[in-house]
């Protein structure tokens, strides 16, 4: 099949590229654009490690064709903050020791970001529910929850 010319807006930057029609966004991010912060695992929407933001919503980039993303805003973990400019969620994850092996963390942080943008003052139960599409094999859920709650405390007054 012929490749598709795509124009994708990722972390505020526009990329012109050629992609296979069946390639999910995840594949294009990791192999064509070198944005390897977005992780690959189950490829069936169960684990959430490939979570990115699409027009501000959390989505699984393994189930989204790159071709469907034209004209939409994509944010990956690289777009949230760098080593010198951590996002408050990244800061609280560090402070609370919420990162063990780290593989699930980009997805956790982006799912949390999408949720806090809609509900700046969530309860603990609401955060658990919001992160139910993200698995952590280290089972570090409690500290992840603590970090998201702390980030909500930092972010809410800034809104």
């Amino acid at each position: 099949m012929r490749k598709l010319p795509l124009s994708l807006t990722i972390n505020g930057e526009t990329h012109e590229l050629l992609a296979e029609p069946h390639h999910p966004l995840l594949e294009v991010l990791r192999t064509q654009l070198g944005l390897i912060g977005t992780k690959e695992n189950c490829l069936e929407g169960e684990c959430g490690v490939c979570t990115v933001l699409l027009d501000g919503m959390a989505v699984n980039s393994c189930l989204l064709l790159a071709a469907q993303c034209q004209g939409r805003r994509i944010v990956t973990i690289e777009g949230l903050g760098g080593p010198e400019t951590l996002h408050p969620l990244q800061e609280t994850f560090v402070e609370h020791g919420a990162v063990q092996c780290g593989y699930c963390i980009p997805g956790m942080i982006l799912a949390a970001k999408a949720y806090l943008d809609q509900n700046p003052e969530p309860t603990e139960g609401e955060i658990r529910e919001a992160l139910s599409g993200n698995l952590c094999r280290c089972t570090g859920y409690q500290k992840i929850l603590d970090a998201v709650l702390a980030a909500a405390g930092v972010l809410a007054p800034m809104r």
């Binding site: 699409l54 989505v59 189930l63 799912a111 999408a114 599409g133 993200n134």
Partner: peptide, 9 residues
């Protein structure tokens, strides 16, 4: 149905 990521789409 699934997590937020699945229900969003």
């Amino acid at each position: 149905v699934g997590g937020h990521q699945v229900r969003n789409v």
